[in-house]
Design a protein around this nucleic acid. Sequence first.
DNA 1: ATCCTATTTAAGATTGATTACAAATTAGGA
DNA 2: TCCTAATTTGTAATCAATCTTAAATAGGAT
Lengths: 160, 160
Amino acid sequence: MKEMTDIHMNEMVEMLQEKLRNAGIKVTHQRLEIFLEVLRAYDHPDADKVFKNVRKRLPTVSLDTVYRTLWLLVEMGILQALGNSREKTRFDVNLDKHHHFTCRLCGEVFDFHNQELSCLNILPVLPDIGKVEQITIEIRGICESCMKKQDQISKKGVSE
Amino acid sequence: MKEMTDIHMNEMVEMLQEKLRNAGIKVTHQRLEIFLEVLRAYDHPDADKVFKNVRKRLPTVSLDTVYRTLWLLVEMGILQALGNSREKTRFDVNLDKHHHFTCRLCGEVFDFHNQELSCLNILPVLPDIGKVEQITIEIRGICESCMKKQDQISKKGVSE
DNA sequence: ATCCTATTTAAGATTGATTACAAATTAGGA
DNA sequence: TCCTAATTTGTAATCAATCTTAAATAGGAT
């Protein structure tokens, strides 16, 4: 799917090294190999698959390092994590079309309605991909109540 | 958030009873109480929260029953499960705007681009809710390759 | 009301992903 | 090169969720 020349890969790894250095984070061969593995992957590998493949080149790498590195790269905006499997499954009465806003601070989930989202016109069949059965739209951010709390804290910090 | 009168609740419970009976599934007070608990909840509770609250009324209910019932109701289309916490987290190089199509049969994830999705105009601040930081759109369905496999199987079944 | 079967309970074991910890190693500046 | 704090390693723990078994319970068809 994703064509990636060796030259392009080298550029990406150099970019990573620079970002790490700028952030004062050590450039270890583990981190580079783990990043390379995700780059190289045609699919979207899970942590265990990355672990197994990196092990072929670094036989002593630990699963822990793979997890820590992957999430580090996500925090740095270099990778993205698909799905929200770290959260517990929540259950909701299946009423009319509505969407969910999850606060990343308190974890609360709020319903909201949005004309544009509800009227999304996704073809029932995506060419060359498959048949669409379900569209999930999840919005994440900070809820009003948590924003107010943050404001109060930052005001306190300034006034002191 | 979700206003639900007692009358409305009764209607919903009757609807559930009818659906259970039509499906030949026994109407137990456990199932009704668990459904009622999700109905009553202003938020979107996880299984453990449902369990703890139902226990207040049915002190002997087991966690196992709560899980079984919640997923039963999801299968019947009466509840929906938020998030995909049953799947492992996958990692992807964070390139340009693209979306993901997950095949529910083989689990493969495919990238695709969609003008309409990429140009979605969500307000950065949802009134009365909070600040938007991230929009995730996940499409689920059956990929081409799995559809072909299914076709072959059904043709085989007919020709025999 | 009776009977058959689905369902629930209880308590524990299991799975599978993810994270925590102490000890050993290493990157990178002085 | 040396030093030190950051990082990694290997193992063990955690956590949600599921399964197991056997016994008890309760729907609902007749």
